[in-house]
Simulated assay, not measured.
Amino acid sequence: MRRFLLTFLLLGCGLVHAAELPETDWLDLMPKSDQKALEQMPEIDHDSPEANGTFTAKGGLKQSKGLPAVMYSSKTVHAMNGKNIRLGGYPVPLETDAKGRSTLFFLVPYPGACIHVPPPPPNQLVLVRYPKGLKLDDIYTPLWVMGTLKVETVSNDLADAAYALDASKVRVVVEADL
C-alpha cells in the first residue's frame, strides 16, 4: 500500500509540483479596504491626460490628478510579512549578472505592467531578489516565484513597491500548471 501511494504521488501529481507551496493570490497582498476601492474605481482611460502620468527622477509614477488614491496605495497586509509563498506573475528586469541573468526584478500581476501607465499600486508590485539569476528571454513569460515575502518599501526610477521577496526558486509557468 505504501509503495502504491508513493508511486501515485510521484507519477500522478508530479514530483516538482507536489513539493511546491500553494499559490498566493495577488489580492492577498492588498488590504480589504484597497480591494473594495479598486472594485469601485472607474475604468482608466489611457487616452486621458493622466495616462501620461507624472514621472520624477526617483520613485516612478506619482499621483496624477484624476486617479484614485488606491492606485498609489502602499498599504500592506502585515500577516504576509515573513511568509514563505509561491506567487505567479511577470518579470520587469532591473539588474543582471555578468552572464545576463536577471538577479533583481519586479514581479507584477499582469504582462506589460510598468511599461504601460499607470503601473500597479505599490502593494501589487514585489521586488524579487534572486542571486542565482534567471535568463529572461521575454518579459511576457509568466513565472512562479517562491521564497520569503517581506513588507519592505522599495523605490527606484521605474516604480515603487511595498513588498520584497528573497527568492529560493524561480521557474517558468508551464501548461501543466494551468
Rank of each mutant, 00 (worst) to 15 (best):
V128N: 00
R129S: 15
G133W: 03
D97F: 10
Y130L: 08
F105I: 10
K99W: 05
Y110I: 00
Y130T: 02
D97S: 11
T103C: 09
P91V: 05
H116V: 10
Q124V: 00
V128P: 04
Y140R: 12
F106M: 06
D137G: 15
R129T: 14
H116L: 12
F105M: 13
L136E: 10
L104M: 04
V92F: 15
L136H: 06
F106V: 00
C114S: 05
A98L: 12
P119L: 02
G133I: 06
V92Y: 15
L94C: 07
V126W: 00
I139P: 14
L127D: 00
Y130N: 02
I139K: 13
Y130P: 05
N123F: 03
L94M: 09
V92T: 13
V117Y: 14
F106T: 00
Q124R: 13
P93C: 11
P109N: 04
A113T: 07
P121V: 00
P118Q: 04
Y130Q: 04
P131Y: 07
P119I: 03
Y140A: 06
P91A: 11
G133A: 09
P93H: 11
E95T: 09
P111Q: 07
G112Y: 07
V117W: 12
R101D: 09
A98F: 11
A98C: 01
L107P: 04
P120F: 00
N123Q: 05
L136G: 02
Q124Y: 04
V117L: 13
Y130V: 03
D97C: 09
G100A: 12
G112N: 11
S102R: 02
R129F: 12
T103V: 15
L134M: 14
L127Y: 03
G112W: 08
Y110S: 11
R101C: 11
R101S: 11
D97H: 12
Y130R: 06
V126N: 00
Q124A: 10
I115W: 12
V117F: 14
E95Q: 15
K99S: 15
P131F: 07
K132Y: 07
P119R: 01
H116P: 01
K132W: 05
Y110K: 13
V117S: 14
C114Y: 11
T96C: 06
P120E: 01
I139R: 12
V108P: 00
Y140E: 08
K135W: 09
D138Y: 12
G100F: 05
L104W: 00
K135E: 15
D137Y: 12
G100H: 09
D137A: 13
I115D: 13
